[in-house]
Amino acid sequence: MDWVNAIIQGLLTGGLYALFACGLSLLFGVMKVVNLAHGDLAIVAGYIGVGVIAVSHMPVLWSIPVVVLLMAVLGYVLQRSLLEAAISRGELTTLIVTFGLSIIIENGLQQFFTANSRGLGVGDSFITASFTIGSQITIAWFNLAVFVVAVVVLLGLQQYLSYSKYGRLIRAVADDREAAQLSGADYRHVFGIAAAIAFGTVAIAGMAEGMVTTISPSLGTDTILLFAFASVVIGGLGSLWGTLLGGVILGVAQAVGAQINPSYEQLAGYAVFLLVLVFRPQGLTSRGAQ
């Protein structure tokens, strides 16, 4: 039964991965940008949360919308200034700039907060409370909650992109930037909105991570970025549900690996990632070639 529990755990973790990944997927789909600083942004959100709570003493759950809002604004501003300048100068520059940003953020956080990990103190009982199915399957409430939140966010994002004015514009600009301009859309503004959304979703994920376990400056690149990217690639670009699938597969692979040997956890995930990258780089849900 350990196996079943592990797989279920992996499934639920996959939701968190998908939450990390959907912002990356959005940025890549709309702007063709691989944001190497994406993982670090989640950590930044976590630390903003720490700061907000320290200053205002509000309960953790209340701080989440505040952090999301702050991050969304940060996303818009960063996109309109730095990222836009980088994108207009080409893919190479964009990679270098986002990489530079990642290093700056990580080391900056380390400088101010030390390398130690930090939690967002939700209270142990809340985190570890669990329920059982049957006699042997245990599921932690919080993990389930995070999974549900992830699904809800993805659903919301899907609806937004399909039916709202700016959602349409985001899709239009992603399809054909010039034609969108001819219809009156300032693509810089649309990109900014997309970035704001991406930053907002990654903020939720970062806060969740901080609540489930802990965050530390190096986590952004150590795990989050690569896991997020792996989820996108495995699931297939261009599909939010694919990202969820990718995250779940990744989570399950890691859980299986961990069952075999605790130190195989990350390796198992990367192995699946590499397999997909070599044999089906367009991902599992995508139809065409990369």
């Binding site: 004015k165 349409r168 514009l169 899709r171 239009a172 992603a174 399809d175 054909d176 010039e178 034609a179 969108a180 001819l182 219809s183 009156g184 859309a185």
Partner: peptide, 23 residues
């Protein structure tokens, strides 16, 4: 524009709606 340049992943209606975004 030359070559139509519709938004390929959008529906007919969505294409029109985008056109109306800043009408």
């Amino acid at each position: 524009p030359e070559g139509r340049r519709l938004f390929p992943t959008l529906s007919l209606e969505d294409n029109l709606k985008v056109g109306a975004s800043y009408a």
